[in-house]
C-alpha cells in the first residue's frame, strides 16, 4: 500500500464535497455536477449563466487559496507526454458530456440519489479508469 494513504483528510474532504452538494440541493434545488455546470456554459440560456460562472469561480478561488496555503495539495507528480494529456482531456471532456456526468454528478450526487443510471456510469468509469491506470502503470513503471 502507498505511504501516501490519507484516510482522515480524504474523508473530511469528501464530507465537505457532500456538504457543498447538499447546500446546492437545499438552496438551489440543483445537482452539483461539475461537468454539467461547465457544459451548460457552452449552450447558454438567459439567466442560467451567472450561477454557473460563480460556482466555477468558487472552485478556482479555492485553488488560488491553495497556491498560497498548501501548494502540495496541487502537486501534479504524474509524468505524461503532452499528447497523452491532450487525449486524456478530450476523453474527459467529451465523455462526461456524452454520458451526462462525472465523479461529482454521477458519483456523489447520483449514488446518493440511488440512481441506476449513475450506478452504471460509476461502475463503468471506475473499471475503465482502473484498466487504463494499471496498463499505463505496467508500461511506464508507475505514476511518477
Amino acid at each position: 500500500m502507498s505511504p501516501e494513504f490519507t484516510p482522515v483528510l480524504s474523508t473530511l474532504g469528501g464530507a465537505l464535497i457532500g456538504a457543498s452538494a447538499s447546500a446546492m440541493l437545499l438552496l438551489e434545488g440543483r445537482v452539483a455536477g461539475i461537468s454539467g455546470i461547465v457544459g451548460g456554459l457552452f449552450t447558454p440560456k438567459a439567466g442560467d449563466i451567472g450561477w454557473r460562472l460563480a460556482f466555477l469561480g468558487g472552485l478556482v478561488l479555492a485553488g488560488v487559496g491553495a497556491t498560497v496555503l498548501s501548494p502540495a495539495s496541487l502537486a501534479v507528480e504524474v509524468v505524461r507526454a503532452p499528447w497523452m494529456l491532450v487525449v486524456a482531456g478530450l476523453f474527459v471532456g467529451v465523455g462526461t458530456r456524452l454520458g451526462n456526468g462525472c465523479t461529482s454528478g454521477h458519483g456523489v450526487c447520483g449514488l446518493s440519489r440511488m440512481s441506476p443510471r449513475s450506478l452504471a456510469s460509476v461502475v463503468t468509469f471506475m473499471a475503465v479508469g482502473a484498466v487504463v491506470a494499471v496498463a499505463v502503470g505496467q508500461l511506464t513503471g508507475g505514476a511518477s
Binding site: 461539475i34 472552485l59 505524461r80 486524456a88 451526462n100 487504463v132
Partner: peptide, 28 residues
C-alpha cells in the same frame, strides 16, 4: 451513458484529473 463513461474513465485513468479538480488546479 455507457460510451461516455468509458471515455471519461479512460481519460481519468490516463490524466489523473476529473473536471472539478482540473479547474481547481489550473491556477497553479
Amino acid at each position: 451513458l455507457l460510451v461516455g463513461a468509458v471515455l471519461f474513465g479512460a481519460g481519468w485513468g490516463l490524466g489523473g484529473y476529473c473536471p472539478g479538480p482540473a479547474l481547481t488546479s489550473v491556477v497553479a
